[in-house]
């Protein structure tokens, strides 16, 4: 355990609601333990604000272990902050320097309107998933699980894509606010598996159409998404999605 205490200066985006204008407000938090998580540090700040009669900084979080995709904001210009392959909730103060000034702002994208402070509305992702992010199989109609043989490498490859947590950092990092990494991860997960083949064309057409409807921008291969993705989702899936999309269009 690390005994040294730290101080952080925080520049945090405060915005009362979707309509209100926002602005940065400066806070200083002292006597922090380096073993504390970044969100626990915000808990400490919020306790202090509450005691002073001020409004706490609102931010989303739930599992606090990097799996639910609830947390997420931009730290010093980078979605999910300085550590590659981690979510905001997986950052610890030992990842920061004593006395550092840290800027916190919400994910910025037209498709993700700010709700309050660091909280944004990512429901567009659910609508894209509703359009086709699944295999159509009613409960009770499945054959025996081992009747579908899936080579280990194939299952592992599908898993790599299925690991997306739907956090939206890829959108926030993209200069065009494209959702391509998120959408392609689901398309690749299902396209790589035998069970996903029957709906492969239909799925990609429907999901891409919905993505376009939701005010996300186009992908122009910047690769910023991959760099911030906490689950290291690869941009090769975007290429797969494009190929599948063209094939599906041709087949139509």
């Amino acid at each position: 355990m690390n005994k040294k205490k730290m101080t952080l200066h925080l520049k945090i985006w405060r915005q009362a609601n979707a309509q209100a204008p926002g602005r940065f407000v400066l806070y200083t938090v002292k006597d922090l333990s380096p073993d504390m998580s970044f969100l626990e540090m915000l808990d400490v700040l919020n306790e202090e604000l509450t005691k002073k009669g001020e409004l706490p900084v609102e931010f989303d979080s739930d599992c606090r272990e990097g799996i639910c995709g609830t947390c997420g904001f931009v730290i010093n210009g980078v979605a999910h902050g300085p550590r590659r392959g981690r979510t905001v909730c997986q950052l610890y103060l030992r990842d920061f320097q004593d006395g550092q000034t840290v800027t916190l702002e919400p994910f910025r994208a037209k498709a993700f309107p700010v709700i309050k402070d660091l909280v944004v509305d990512r429901s567009a992702f659910d609508r894209i998933m509703a359009a086709g992010g699944y295999i159509s199989v009613d409960t009770g109609s499945a054959p025996d699980a081992n009747s579908i043989l899936i080579p280990k490498e194939v299952a592992e490859a599908a898993f790599d894509a299925a690991a997306c947590i739907g956090c939206g950092a890829c959108v926030a990092a993209c200069p065009n606010a494209s959702a391509s990494l998120f959408v392609s991860a689901k398309i690749a997960h299902l396209a790589l598996l035998p069970q996903g083949q029957p709906e492969r064309h239909r799925r990609v057409l429907k999901m891409v159409a919905q993505m376009d409807k939701e005010n996300f921008g186009n992908c122009s291969n910047h690769g910023e998404c991959e760099a911030v993705c906490p689950k290291n989702i690869s941009i090769k899936y975007i290429a797969l999605m494009r190929r599948d999309y063209l094939r599906a269009l041709l087949a139509k």
């Binding site: 499945a142 899936i150 592992e156 069970q195």
Partner: peptide, 22 residues
């Protein structure tokens, strides 16, 4: 037993052996 069948049909990428079995 039905649960595993259902989940595999949905595309849940359970761990597999080299022969393709669960």
């Amino acid at each position: 037993v039905n649960i595993i069948d259902q989940c595999v049909a949905q595309g849940v990428p359970f761990a597999r052996e080299y022969g393709g079995l669960l």
